[in-house]
């Protein structure tokens, strides 16, 4: 769904001035950087980390929504949710492939996820408690992901930009589908309306936090902007998301759980926007660093699937080797017979 961005990314490079200037000139000319091109080590590392985090987010993101596949309340919703979670797995697959063009393997990245070394979007460390969470995640979390990812379609690294174009199409479908689930609940029974409001109450702030720390506290952002890996600041994207989402909530008759939320004419260069109240950054950092309700369960679930699947992967490998050996034997036999 969304990578946290560049927390802890080390964008330092050791290349000489001329090399860096030539590279920067290509970036400034909006040329796409491709896997075989020379690139600063810091650029490569930053991308490996970001694409890896993004891929892990897609994979871990399958868990909270997967939690409701078996309980979806209608067959239409069940099929749509199953297809959505499957899409997220597909996003993980393209993104791992994009990262592999930078010289890391999917196995290495998986090990980093399972060991807790690699991060993923902290939004997935919150639990899905009701069916309304499924609609709300689509609406807000996929919605926030789109805000972050549309600029990534123009990212300077070609394979990432191309993967994002495909991913964004599916994410916007997820967002509309999620909003439609919430709309159905908001127009439903009292219990359904209450369920929708409760889900918004729980997911609003974590969704706002998905854009990462305020610009002033966001280390590494500047270098990523210069390299056109990142094109808009965290706060600019967050503001865009809030401005798009608050009217949607109003349309549904739901209340955004921010008592300070108010229209402010001075925002967005005088065009006006919704000013939000203070964000609880302590909570954000606690969840990022592993202290959320679901952090341990999420990694445990991934590790369990991986460990319990080991014999399957080993068998596939062993079978492929046996096959190759047999084929080699047949080829050799065929040659002897022909001679």
């Amino acid at each position: 769904m969304y990578s946290q961005g560049l927390i802890g990314a080390d964008g330092r490079t050791e290349e000489d001035e001329a090399f860096l200037a030539a590279f920067q000139a290509r970036i400034d000319a909006e040329e796409k950087i491709e896997p075989k091109d020379a690139m600063p080590e810091g650029y490569r590392k930053t991308l490996v980390r970001q694409i890896g985090q993004h891929a892990h987010s897609e994979i871990v993101g399958m868990l909270p929504e997967g939690n409701w596949i078996t309980r979806a309340p209608s067959l239409r919703r069940k099929a749509a949710l199953l297809a959505k979670v499957q899409d997220e797995g597909g996003h993980g697959l393209y993104l791992y492939s994009a990262a592999e063009t930078l010289g890391v393997t999917r196995e290495q990245m998986t090990e980093e996820l399972l060991s807790g070394k690699a991060k993923y979007s902290s939004i997935f460390n919150y639990p899905t408690l009701t069916w309304a969470d499924i609609g709300t995640i689509g609406w807000l979390v996929d919605g926030a992901a789109i805000m972050n990812q549309i600029p990534l379609c123009r990212c300077s690294y070609g394979p990432y930009a191309r993967a994002m174009i495909r991913v964004c199409k599916e994410e916007s479908f997820h967002q509309r589908q999620g909003y439609e689930i919430v709309m159905t609940l908001a127009r439903g029974t009292e219990a359904q309306k209450a369920m929708a409001q409760d889900a918004l109450n729980r997911w609003w702030w974590p969704s706002i936090m998905m854009f990462g720390p305020h610009d002033a506290e966001s280390a590494h952002s500047e270098q990523s902007m210069a390299w056109k890996i990142k094109r808009f600041s965290n706060d600019a994207l967050r503001q865009k998301f809030i401005d798009a989402t608050v009217p949607q909530a109003e349309f549904l008759g739901l209340k955004v759980p921010d008592p300070d939320m108010a229209w402010d004419e001075s925002l967005n260069d005088g065009k006006g926007g919704y000013r939000h109240g203070p964000i609880d950054w302590d909570e954000f950092w606690r969840v990022v660093k592993g202290g959320g309700v679901m952090n341990r369960d999420r990694i445990k679930a991934r590790r369990k699937a991986w460990d319990e699947g080991a014999w399957v992967r080993e068998a596939a490998q062993a079978h492929a080797e046996k096959r190759a050996a047999r084929r080699a034997g047949e080829d050799a036999g065929g040659k002897v017979a022909a001679e």
Partner: peptide
Amino acid sequence: SEWCGHAPMLEEDLALP
């Protein structure tokens, strides 16, 4: 559908659903 997200490999997380 019970397998979704818990399969032995990502390819099967797509194939089973």
